[in-house]
Nucleic acid binder design. Structure first.
Lengths: 339, 339
DNA sequence: GTGAAAGCGCTAACAT
DNA sequence: ATGTTAGCGCTTTCAC
């Protein structure tokens, strides 16, 4: 990296000292207007920009927000990211992404690096928390951590109630007269990372069934290995298609899986929703554009992202921010034509 | 931020000097195995992690890659990001995202910040280049810049030939016997940012028409304002539906727009592909799962992301990397059932 | 209102 | 094989 213009260059050009320039940059009021103007002009002329590392070093503050996720391409995460981006712009913060790629060692390494390496001032994590020992350290060090989609006592979290979502989806199916309802969901997510999202949705499913006097058994939960379109297709072809009397599916795994199921069912000459009702989860943009349009449970992803940033930023506004924030959004049923 | 354990703490604990610890961290071979082991153990015990800012400051290297895009949620960008993430993991680099939110001043500010503020060692930009004056500075300063999806002489770029893509799409439509083909594309992207992606695709469209002796006129290009599903729907409802004799559409604007068009057309009792053939662009994951499955032009997004990172990293392997890299992938026709 | 001096945590010569 | 010294670019007392 070539040498760049530093604060000293600016100082020399104006005929003041680095301190003065620094004060101007930091809006210190005890600088005369005359000097301030000259300094500002020199900064402009020389294309001076403060060195981020040097600043972080002395201020012990990086002005960056870390975002951690296993992967960033799940479509629901786009909505989260969208909210985050919009909220961060205009503030002096930028953000740095860490994809842990579903690897436990990588995840642990990243959680350590963030905590101890001072890469960022605060961490927003998508559905993942540090392993227990590290988590204790986070708490002990009072490192600002906000977790989206995962509820851990003592941690800031931004949630959308998955139990209610599962309940609403199932109840709607029941009220539409469906009698033989199955739920598609990953059964057990990577225990180490710990996700209770799916579990809660399934609990809502179960409760709704019971509340309406309908039979529930574990077999009603069909397992998928992942969350993408392909999983829905595989799921239909390998198990759903052979269930006799099946008339409804709640894709707790999300809209892409629901869409995959619909796709496979239609290929199988099954009419949606007449023969089979399908309800998704998330209300992704695409949900409204398939045929038939997908009935689903909406989570306010963008709002959730915004809220996460706001909690994060609140740590810098007042230093004495010690309360734990827990924001819970309510999922909404979006009725279209697949049920 | 609380004080953390520093290199000195480690040194003191072991009874050596900071230099020694530093050498261990940096794998300097001239350290005795005995000392190395003791230092490593102390690092472990104390949970020491090098301060990123301090390191960047002295090494003049941040070990971070900046990624810039207007927004990160276009679905094709997910594929790019996926490739980037996978390629970066395992290297000592992390990456920082800058969303410019379609704002010219924000974009310029970010381009300046990256160049002068030393936030990152290299910039991978999605389809955007700095304004002319700044671009000159980038080149003058030899700041490593790789641009995806935008071909600018003298800059590293990773491309997928949009002219060929447009040509292939159109030619396929023609060979399937379509006679009255329209192209849907944003006509003029933000001139300041400068995107020629769409323009090239449209040129391919035009050339294919001409090569096959078919009439081309500007009216055959239908303008959209954005790239999402909704745009396709609007486009169909406001103009496509009234075009008499229309039998094919090339959605140069991308798969989501194609899907939006199909959705709206189906609502209008138009049969796809019998009455209307629709071909998309990108081959997003969802393309295979709509009904009918979408015929489209595939761009190897993940590969493109990987390649971009590799070019970026090459700047660190050899310092004397002065040649400009220009990688051009070839788009492929993916035949499904919408044509 | 501005400057001098010290130091943030680390690394890179240069010694020894 | 390890320690001494200086310095990366900036901010922050504390003087004046």
């Amino acid at each position: 990296m070539a040498r760049r213009v530093t604060i000293k260059d600016v100082a020399k050009k104006v005929g003041v000292t680095a301190t003065t320039v620094s004060m101007v940059i930091n809006n210190n009021p005890s600088i005369s207007t005359r000097t301030r103007d000259k300094v500002l002009k020199a900064i402009e002329d020389l294309n001076y920009y403060p060195n981020h590392a040097a600043r972080s070093l002395v201020k012990r503050k990086t002005n960056t927000i870390a975002i951690l996720a296993e992967f960033f391409y799940p479509l629901f995460y786009q909505q989260l990211l969208d909210g985050i981006e919009h909220r961060v712009i205009g503030s002096p913060y930028s953000f740095i992404h860490f994809a842990t790629l579903a690897s436990k060692p990588i995840r642990e390494k990243i959680f350590r690096e963030i905590l101890y390496g001072r890469v960022a001032d605060v961490l927003i994590s998508f559905n993942r928390v540090p392993p227990q020992r590290l988590l204790t350290e986070y708490i002990k060090e009072k490192y600002p951590l906000v977790v989206i989609e995962h509820d851990v006592p003592g941690l800031n979290s931004v949630l959308c109630d998955n139990f209610i979502g599962g309940y609403k989806a199932t109840e709607f199916l029941i009220k539409q007269g469906r009698k033989n309802i199955y739920c598609v969901s990953p059964r057990r997510i990577d225990a180490a990372g710990g996700s209770d999202v799916q579990i809660k949705r399934v609990e809502g499913f179960k409760k709704a069934l019971e509340d309406h006097g309908m039979d529930f058994s574990e077999e009603r939960i069909i397992e998928t290995t992942h969350f993408y379109f392909e999983a829905g297709k595989e799921c239909y072809n390998s198990v759903l298609k052979d269930i006799k009397g099946l008339d409804a599916v709640f894709a707790a795994a999300g809209d892409p899986v629901a869409i995959g199921i619909i796709h496979a069912a239609q290929n199988d000459k099954v009419m949606i929703p007449d023969d089979l009702a399908v309800i998704g989860y998330d209300d992704l943009e695409v949900a409204a554009f398939i045929n038939p349009p997908l009935t689903t449970i909406m989570q306010p992803g963008k709002q959730m992202g915004i809220k996460a940033v706001e909690i994060a930023l609140s740590y810098f506004d007042d230093d004495i921010n010690s309360n734990v924030h827990k924001i819970v959004f309510e999922p909404e049923l979006v009725i279209r034509e697949s049920v």
